[in-house]
Write a protein that binds this DNA or RNA. Structure first.
Length: 607
DNA sequence: GCCGTTTTCGGCCCGACTGTTTTCAGTCG
């Protein structure tokens, strides 16, 4: 019986190996440590399960996995453990690896604490450490003091809090508020979000803001007076941090306009993007940093026993814009959404970066809940179809689809359901010829239908004739094995009128994991049968996730970006769905609702 | 231990901060 091992578990194991090597002999194993950390990163960020790749014999295709680690993983999957790893772990207390979870505690610190405090067992290790600190026992250990006790304690508290990551729309709103405030000061020449927010990740850690200014002191003073804060954390010469009243940390970094490009580039990341970029730069003889680019000459060969040699450094070259920064390295500017080291650097060097879809390309919203009284089992929309059409017009759309939830099955007879569906069809038809039509928004009569656990759809067969097309979605029985869930979804998509799979993975950010399904199989089915996958712009869904968008597009599946709005204000979420698509390398060619009505008709209304 | 538009051998990203030290080790992004 093979035990399934998740990517996270494998990555954790490889990081343990790296930590163990650090303790054994950091200098001797210096490059093994890096190699194992890289392999761990690579696996953790992989969009496919390593176990699946192993089954297919494709594990060595992963970056950072060579013959040695491949052999170890082979052993891991076959026997459930790795002899070589066991030997490396020998003599190291399990408790040490537990303590590594504490922010600010690395291998050396963890090992020392375990040894000196005689904490060996994994279970309760952090609790015992906390007790030892409270008894003042840590300050007596060489290399520790009262301040480090406090620091570890804070780390333990932080670990316990495990603060949720901020949803993209919330982070965007807060960042905009801070940026607008900063711009009130005339010393602020430019201000932009940084980090995962600028890369438009679906969830954000801290909110980092870049400012271009020749007068950093004045900017910091202004920042210190930001009204919506709990307190300042620190304020230095060109950096400052505060806690926003919403509880999130806001970091500020300032550079003169002449060096602003390098600042933006550096702190936008991602870490992996930057590492790869610096490696490439170094081969061309340049060293990159947040201040700019510096030519370097490789040092002479090291003498045996000599200390590490400084590379002779040239004069720093500054960059006002990111475009110039990348251009200097012979690259096209890379949209921040792509900067994850998943091929964008190579594409930039070969001038083959995709032209990503933009919000202005979107011609309509195909997932909207109005307040039309269809007596659904799930939540009803807040606003009338007419109001939604007005909003659509203000967004420059050509069409909208009304996709209320299906009438509840338990509360209605079949004939009642058919009556409701007929009534809605007639209503939408009226709408299309009514005076609201002079806004020339085409209304499409659709429905979001529950996929029942057996894959059948929750309206009677005769009901489909009242629909232009249907979105089908899983709203119940999320826990189901992969095979059954895949069959369930494929069966639902087999209905002729079922065209779009709504919020395909069912994930809820900070709340619920995606259910398991064989996405490759679903992608193939969609491609062959002209079915489409939704990219939900709804803030806690953002589903399909970006990496699956990329895979779906690779297979040739078209997608639809929709807001799943339950009130008109939510129709403004569209850019967040576009952000997910962009992170998935989507061009407008793979986004169905970038097409005008006449063209989507043949895809959606053809059965 | 991994990897290759300078290499199949000889390299391997960059800088800041912090706390404990009197010159540096550990951790982080």
């Amino acid at each position: 019986m093979e035990k399934s091992i998740s990517n996270k578990e494998i990555a954790d194991l490889l990081r343990k190996v790296a930590a163990a090597y650090t303790i054994k002999d950091e200098n001797k194993y210096k490059f093994q440590i890096i190699a194992y950390q890289r392999a761990a990163d690579s696996i953790e960020h992989s969009s496919s399960e390593v176990k699946d790749l192993w089954d297919e014999g494709k594990i060595s295709e992963m970056a950072g996995i060579g013959p040695s680690i491949e052999a170890h993983l082979d052993e891991l999957f076959k026997k459930g453990k790795v002899k070589h790893f066991q030997e490396i772990f020998k003599g190291l207390p399990e408790a040490m690896f537990e303590m590594l979870k504490i922010p600010g505690v690395g291998p050396k610190t963890a090992f020392k604490l375990c040894k000196k405090l005689k904490i060996y067992q994994k279970k309760g290790a952090i609790l015992k450490l906390e007790e030892a600190i409270k008894l003042g026992k840590v300050r007596d250990i060489e290399g520790f003091g009262e301040v480090s006790e406090e620091k570890i304690l804070k780390g333990i508290q932080e670990l316990a809090r495990k603060t949720e990551r901020i949803l993209l729309p919330i982070a965007s709103k807060i960042a905009l508020e801070v940026i607008n405030y900063l711009k009130e000061n005339k010393s602020v020449l430019r201000a932009d979000p940084l980090g995962s927010l600028r890369r438009q990740c679906s969830t954000i850690g801290d909110i980092d803001i870049a400012v271009a200014s020749d007068n950093p002191k004045q900017v910091i003073e202004h920042f210190k007076k930001f009204p919506n804060k709990v307190r300042m954390l620190e304020a230095g010469e060109r950096t400052a941090s505060l806690i926003h009243t919403r509880g999130y940390q806001i970091d500020l970094m300032i550079q003169p306009p002449s060096a602003y490009g390098a600042l933006l580039q550096h702190f936008t990341g991602s870490k992996h993007h930057n590492i790869k970029l610096r490696e490439i730069a170094l081969k061309k003889g340049y060293s990159l940093s947040e201040y700019g680019i510096r030519p370097v000459k490789k040092g002479e060969k090291l003498e045996i026993g000599s200390e590490k040699e400084e590379r002779p450094q040239g004069k720093l070259i500054e960059f006002a814009t990111e475009e110039e920064f990348y251009k200097f390295l012979g690259m096209d500017w890379i949209p921040p959404e792509l900067r994850e080291d998943t091929g964008e650097i190579e594409a930039s060097l070969s001038k083959t970066l995709p032209k990503l879809v933009e919000t202005k390309d979107i011609k309509g919203d195909l997932h909207l809940h109005s307040n039309f009284s269809i007596e659904p089992s799930h939540d009803i929309g807040e606003n009338s179809p007419e109001k939604i059409i007005q909003k659509a017009a203000s967004l420059g759309y050509e069409y909208v689809a009304f996709t209320e939830h299906n009438p509840s099955v338990s509360q209605h007879s079949i004939s009642q359901i058919l009556t409701l569906l007929r009534r809605k069809k007639e209503y939408i038809e009226q709408l299309n010829i009514s005076r609201i039509n002079n806004l020339s928004i085409k209304a499409i009569n659709s429905l979001e239908i529950d996929i029942k656990p057996d894959g059948s759809l929750a309206i009677p067969e005769e009901g489909f004739k009242f629909l232009d097309f249907a979105i089908v979605s899983v709203h119940s029985s999320f826990i189901m094995d992969k095979k059954r869930m895949t069959e369930r979804i494929l069966k639902a998509l087999s209905y002729p009128k079922a065209k779009i799979l709504g919020h395909p993975t069912g994930r809820k950010l900070n709340e619920r994991e995606a259910y398991e399904a064989d996405w490759e199989k679903i992608f193939q089915f969609c491609k062959q049968n002209n079915k489409f996958l939704e990219i939900s712009a709804y803030p806690d869904r953002l589903d399909l996730p970006d990496f699956l968008v990329k895979e779906a597009a690779k297979v040739g599946v078209k997608m639809v970006i929709s807001t799943d709005s339950h009130k008109v204000s939510q129709m403004d979420f569209m850019p967040f769905g576009v952000a997910v698509a962009r992170r998935g390398w989507a061009t407008k060619e793979v986004i169905l609702n970038s097409l005008p009505f006449e063209k989507i008709k043949k895809f959606l209304l053809n059965s």
